[in-house]
């Protein structure tokens, strides 16, 4: 089984990297840019075909994200 964890800063947290990307895009002439938020993606492959979602949430909340400033979403990827 393979899952994709999408991690993004919470809307209330300033994202200076996303802002820098947005400013650069606007500077390159892409004038229709309202906002950019930069996150990260982790693709995790498991040994077994069935994986307990609670365990994936535990990994995300205890290590892969800092719940103080980040939100995450899990999606299953078909191999």
């Amino acid at each position: 089984m393979k899952v994709r964890v999408n991690i993004i800063l919470k809307p209330s947290v300033l994202d200076p990297q996303g802002q820098a990307v947005a400013n650069s895009l606007i500077g390159q002439g892409f004038n229709n840019i309202k906002n950019v938020r930069q996150g990260k993606i982790l693709d995790i492959e498991f040994n077994s075909n069935e994986v307990d979602m609670n365990m994936i949430n535990e990994m995300c909340e205890g290590f892969l994200t800092n719940p103080l400033v980040e939100d995450y979403a899990i999606e299953e990827i078909n191999m």
């Binding site: 947290v13 300033l14 200076p16 990297q17 820098a20 800092n66 103080l68 400033v69």
Partner: peptide
Amino acid sequence: PGILLRNTST
């Protein structure tokens, strides 16, 4: 408590 984030200047 808290967390250290990227400098606002990047």
